[in-house]
């Protein structure tokens, strides 16, 4: 009972319930939704697909969770995904024999450096110049995709270097490799934020930046590194995306990914007004979005129409999180009882 009380007060319960309802729906209406098969030592099935396909959004959501906790937002991550994919693809090259132009590790490193630089640019605008985050990251949102397209000469680059496919398509111990990347990033972020004072400082900045500075804490530094980290996450996400399809399409890579990732964070219980953040909640949020997409696919609905359902879910969840709405519903029930 006590455990339930604690759980019901914790923020993670709402996203978990949402995910649970989705799963339950699938249990009844989607045949074989929960079936997992072992093929050539790899696990296959809808649930594995959800995890695998959700990985890029989960990675983005890790970085965005911290940014949103500072009462910021980073709408440039989708464009940065495109930059990451563009840079790595240019450096590996489209050699049909699969010989990379530069070593794959170097190409990946260079892509990540470019993305961290992009994140630092955002961080600089927000922390030192003092721009509103949505405006500061709007700049790279607009320009980033242009940069990605100019990098790839506005062409789709196909990759044939096999080892690079590991990130997005490979398996390790039966599970998709990308899941290990998510797990590693999540764990590292958890340790850095919760086993040091970073998490508390991030929340402090999100709640009251001025008071944070007055308490002798380098608030600007915290902001700066949150955006830089978000850039890094976008970079990693871009590598996974690029590896999954073995191509870099500056126009479509990471398209609308920022929206999915922001939604994941918000669904996970972190408020857009900053403050308390919930990394695991964001992961659950990303899974909700992915499960929804997969569910819709399973019904043979055109994938594009999935967006309608996604939108309706966002409305529903936003309403559930709205205190005004909950008060109204409660009021309606109260009135009905009186009437009865």
């Amino acid at each position: 009972m006590l455990a339930w009380k604690r759980l019901s007060r914790s923020k993670i319960i709402w996203p978990l319930i949402t995910l649970g309802i989705l799963m339950l729906f699938n249990l009844f209406f989607t045949p074989n939704f929960f079936r997992i098969e072992m093929l050539e030592g790899h696990l296959f099935g809808n649930l594995i697909d959800i995890l695998k396909n959700g990985a890029p959004i989960m990675i983005l959501a890790i970085g965005l969770t911290l940014v949103i906790a500072t009462h910021g937002i980073d709408i440039s991550v989708g464009s940065v995904v495109a930059i990451s994919a563009g840079v790595v693809a240019m450096l590996i090259g489209g050699d049909l024999a699969g010989n990379p132009k530069y070593p794959i590790a170097f190409a990946m490193g260079a892509a990540l450096v470019a993305c961290i630089a992009a994140g630092m640019w955002n961080g600089m605008l927000v922390s030192w110049i003092g721009m509103q985050p949505i405006i500061a990251t709007l700049i790279l949102f607009v320009a980033g995709r242009g940069i990605a397209m100019v990098t790839t000469n506005a062409m789709v680059i196909w990759l044939y270097a096999k080892p690079f496919a590991l990130l997005g398509q490979g398996y390790l111990f039966g599970l998709p490799f990308s899941l290990y990347i998510v797990a590693f990033l999540l764990l590292a972020t958890y340790l850095v934020t919760r086993r040091t004072a970073v998490g508390m400082f991030i929340e402090a900045v999100g709640i009251n930046p001025k008071a944070t500075r007055f308490a002798g804490i380098n608030a600007r530094g915290i902001l700066f590194w949150c955006y830089a980290f978000s850039g890094l996450c976008a970079g990693v996400s871009g590598l996974v995306v690029c590896s999954t399809v073995m191509s870099a399409d500056g126009n479509n890579a990471g398209n609308l990914a920022e929206l999915d990732a922001i939604l994941a964070v918000v669904l996970g219980g972190t408020s857009l007004n900053g403050g308390r953040f919930f990394l695991l909640g964001s992961m659950v949020g990303a899974l909700i979005i992915q499960t929804l997409t997969t569910t819709i696919y399973a019904f043979n609905v055109a994938p594009e129409i999935a967006q309608v359902v996604k939108a309706l879910v966002v409305y529903a969840v936003s309403l559930l999180q709205s205190e005004t709405f909950r008060a109204r519903v409660a009021g309606m029930f109260a009135r009905r009882e009186v009437a009865a």
């Binding site: 508390m200 929340e203 402090a204 709640i207 009251n208 001025k210 008071a211 944070t212 007055f214 308490a215 804490i217 403050g275 308390r276």
Partner: peptide
């Protein structure tokens, strides 16, 4: 400029 309303008393003190 002082209080972090949504942080706990403990966090406000040790910050």
């Amino acid at each position: 400029e002082g209080i972090f309303a949504e942080l706990t008393v403990r966090e406000n003190i040790v910050l």
